[in-house]
């Protein structure tokens, strides 16, 4: 492999990894606070792509405006899911919440199949993403260049929100100890809604960027990225925001590198992510940055 193509692959891996990171944050935030896997998160990612698609393609809005509205709609969907499906189950056994999450996920996917059909649709890409750049001798596609830049910027904004704002502090407090935080007079329900809005908006942005990178969108497009992003959150240490980002990049780079070095195994790239998950669960279940959780007796 030449240096140029190696560089290209690295860019590809970073680009894919940043998308996983965007998606992984939503999983890790919800898991940190409510303690269950929000299976519907990958489907909100899909909705981000579709909402924007309709805003741009059907309502003929300018690209940037369509995406902003699409992402905002994702935040609303995320909050609605929490309000309608998850909040009534907050004190129920955890398995009930998990089953509900699976139900919500399946509902969104099948509603998508019924309304827009299974046939993939072409996602409109802005000129910016179509350009080709020459960087250190390597030809880099606009998407490969801009996707990581945009998503890393978004991730930096998120870090600011989580670690430097009052709301972020409240979120972290709720995930550490919900009861005590409630006793301190914090409105837990509002914090949780905010968490869902934030996570879903990130998923929406991820969905749009994903659609720029792979411009064929379909109602099931969120399943695999969603599952890999959750794996990324586990690898990074579930509940830890920085960990989710680190995990995302690790998964993205590994996936791209395996395909780059062993093209014959490209059909099995998903299986490798599964292997990484199993290895982590065996060797370091708390993840890279996570702490070992032990139930209080």
């Amino acid at each position: 492999m030449t240096w140029v193509s190696f560089f290209q692959q690295i860019m590809n891996g970073v680009s894919l990894g940043s998308l996983y990171a965007l998606l992984a944050i939503g999983y890790t935030l919800v898991y940190g606070i409510l303690g269950f896997i929000n299976f519907a998160h990958g489907d909100v990612f899909m909705l981000g792509a579709y909402f924007s698609f309709f805003m741009i393609g059907v309502f003929l809005l300018p690209w940037w405006l369509g995406v902003i509205i699409g992402v905002a709609l994702c935040a609303i969907v995320g909050m609605s899911i929490e309000r309608i499906a998850y909040r009534p189950l907050r004190d129920a056994p955890r398995i009930s919440a998990l089953i509900t999450a699976v139900g919500v996920s399946f509902f969104i996917e099948n509603l998508g199949l019924v309304t827009v059909g299974a046939r993939p649709k072409g996602f409109p890409r802005p000129e910016l993403m179509k350009n080709v750049y020459i960087l250190a001798g390597a030809r880099i596609q606009g998407v490969t260049f801009w996707v990581p830049i945009i998503s890393v910027s978004v991730l930096l904004v998120l870090l600011y929100l989580v670690y430097r704002t009052k709301m972020g502090m409240a979120m972290r407090a709720v995930s550490k100890d919900m009861e005590t935080t409630r006793l301190m007079g914090v409105d837990i329900d509002r914090i949780i809604l905010y968490t869902f809005a934030l996570g879903s908006a990130l998923a929406g942005i991820g969905g749009v960027l994903w659609a720029c990178k792979y411009p064929q969108i379909n109602p099931l497009m969120g399943t695999f990225p969603g599952w890999k992003a959750f794996t990324a959150a586990v690898v990074g240490g579930i509940g830890n925001v920085v960990g989710a980002m680190v995990g995302g990049f690790i998964i993205g780079l590994t996936e791209i590198m395996i395909v780059a070095f062993f093209p014959g195994l490209s059909g099995y790239r998903d299986a490798f992510v599964f292997t990484i998950l199993i290895i982590f669960l065996l060797v370091k279940p708390s993840g890279i940055l996570g702490e070992t959780l032990k139930e209080k007796v």
């Binding site: 499906a85 009534p88 189950l89 129920a92 009930s96 089953i99 509900t100 699976v102 139900g103 919500v104 399946f106 509902f107 099948n110 509603l111 199949l113 019924v114």
Partner: peptide, 13 residues
């Protein structure tokens, strides 16, 4: 499948 998934969520709640 839409009907079934709604059924599942409503049941759980």
């Amino acid at each position: 499948m839409v009907v079934f998934s709604v059924l599942l969520v409503v049941m759980m709640i």
